[in-house]
């Protein structure tokens, strides 16, 4: 289909959908007028029932923990797919040493960059840990903190160079973090069943409201998510970065089976 015909088709489809979309937009509750009853009930009940201050974490790890378990495995599957696609082409044998393309200049970082990255990297990692650990108290949680922690590893790359980064970040550790995090979350679902509770039921002591150790089982699930997200996203960075090192000449025959 030519681009012009495709755009014409899109315009026709848009025109056909426009009345429905306009009716839907008009039928929605006026912006800012009220919130859904489910959310209002959660806001009213959960601080007392679960001793946590962060409602979003309470939904993710307790009330709708099963959905987060599914999301966790979706994350695992997407990252596994990414890694398989990239590594299948490149081969797995060379994943733990820094490859360098012959002929590409290695420019040493200036001292200012190294210093700034060492300072900012430590601070970023600390902030990531803070966001992870305070999931049930203040805004944040395993997903957000995990991404911040993964970003901190990129500052290691910026400051120490590629070889230093590969020395610090080991691929199989990342695999273990990613899979182990998902496993930890799954175990959080299964272990309560051993003591006669329901799947993912919050059986641990709930702790004190507004305290770091509040929320019971949520803290463990949050840790699993943080591990999986940190490992998974760092793995993504690593695989994409390794891709820029791969030779871009014609491939050897027989390597093309991926």
């Amino acid at each position: 289909m030519s681009p012009r015909a495709r755009l014409a088709l899109l315009a026709a489809a848009g025109l056909a959908l426009l009345p429905g979309a306009a009716a839907t937009l008009g039928g929605l509750p006026a912006f800012g007028s009220r919130i859904a009853e489910y959310g209002a009930r959660i806001n009213a009940l959960v601080p007392g029932e679960r001793h946590v201050a962060n409602m979003v974490s309470a939904i993710n790890f307790d009330l709708r923990g099963l959905d987060t378990l599914g999301e966790e495995f979706m994350l695992l599957a997407a990252i596994t797919g990414t890694v398989v696609l990239l590594r299948g082409r490149r081969g797995e044998g060379m994943t733990d040493r820094a490859m360098r393309r012959p002929g590409r200049a290695v420019r040493p970082q200036t001292e200012a960059v190294v210093l700034a990255c060492r300072v900012a990297g430590v601070l970023t990692a600390l902030f990531g840990l803070y966001v992870v650990l305070h999931a049930t108290v203040t805004p944040g949680g395993g997903f957000q903190g995990g991404v911040i922690l993964a970003s901190a590893t990129l500052l290691v790359y910026l400051g120490e160079g590629y070889v230093g980064w590969r020395d610090a970040v080991r691929s199989h550790w990342l695999d273990a973090m990613e899979g182990g995090g998902a496993l930890l979350f799954a175990l959080c679902g299964l272990v309560p069943m051993l003591v006669g509770a329901a799947f993912l039921q919050n059986v641990l002591p709930l702790g004190t409201f507004r305290d770091l150790f509040s929320g019971g089982l949520m803290l463990v699930e949050n840790l699993g998510v943080a591990l999986a997200v940190t490992g998974g996203f760092t793995q993504l960075f690593l695989e994409f970065m390794e891709e820029t090192r791969a030779a871009d000449g014609p491939e050897e025959p027989g390597e093309d089976s991926a």
Partner: peptide, 9 residues
């Protein structure tokens, strides 16, 4: 509403 915020996450 915290539910939609969790959804956006």
């Amino acid at each position: 509403d915290p539910v939609v915020q969790a959804l956006v996450l």
